[in-house]
């Protein structure tokens, strides 16, 4: 287990119990409250599909919108799966691709540009699918 007291003065430390635990409990209650609000306000259709519902239901949840739009663009399943696999492997390998010693992304302009462009493209794909 990591020892946080090494190299720190007592003023720089606080007790895990109750301070940190209280913070966690508070956030867990906030999450549960947000879920209950979602239960009340996020609509979910369980109706027999009519034309109106058909139009509504063909749209996947927001986090799958970019993937759905990518498939619309590519059509070919094999290409689609290959691209998703390459993206996934690249995403997982980020620590091995970024070998610079600087930690903050703001200190690495090229890497920052790649990340910002990738995120913008994902959001753009999602937005196109959303307003289709």
């Amino acid at each position: 287990m990591a020892d946080y007291s090494k190299g720190r003065s007592p003023e720089e430390l606080e007790s895990f119990y109750p301070n940190e635990i209280l913070r966690h409990i508070l956030l867990i209650f906030l999450l549960i409250s947000a879920v209950i609000l979602g239960v009340i306000f996020i609509p979910e259709s369980f109706q027999k599909s009519t034309d109106e519902f058909a139009a509504l239901q063909t749209r996947p949840p927001w986090y799958l919108l970019p993937f759905s739009q990518l498939l619309n663009l590519l059509e070919n399943k094999a290409t689609y799966i290959s691209i998703l696999t390459i993206i996934a492997i690249t995403f997982i390998s980020i620590p091995f691709l970024d070998r610079k010693s600087e930690r903050s992304l703001w200190d690495k302009p090229i890497f920052l540009s790649i990340i910002v462009i990738s995120l913008s493209m994902i959001m753009l794909l999602g937005l196109i699918r959303l307003f289709q």
């Binding site: 259709s45 369980f46 027999k48 599909s49 519902f53 058909a54 239901q57 063909t58 996947p60 799958l64 993937f67 759905s68 498939l71 619309n72 399943k77 689609y80 799966i81 998703l84």
Partner: peptide, 18 residues
């Protein structure tokens, strides 16, 4: 299966193909 299997409307479209 709210609108996928029964009512013939896919909720995630052709992604199931994957």
């Amino acid at each position: 299966a709210n609108s996928l299997s029964y009512w013939g409307v896919s909720s995630v479209g052709g992604e199931a193909a994957m």
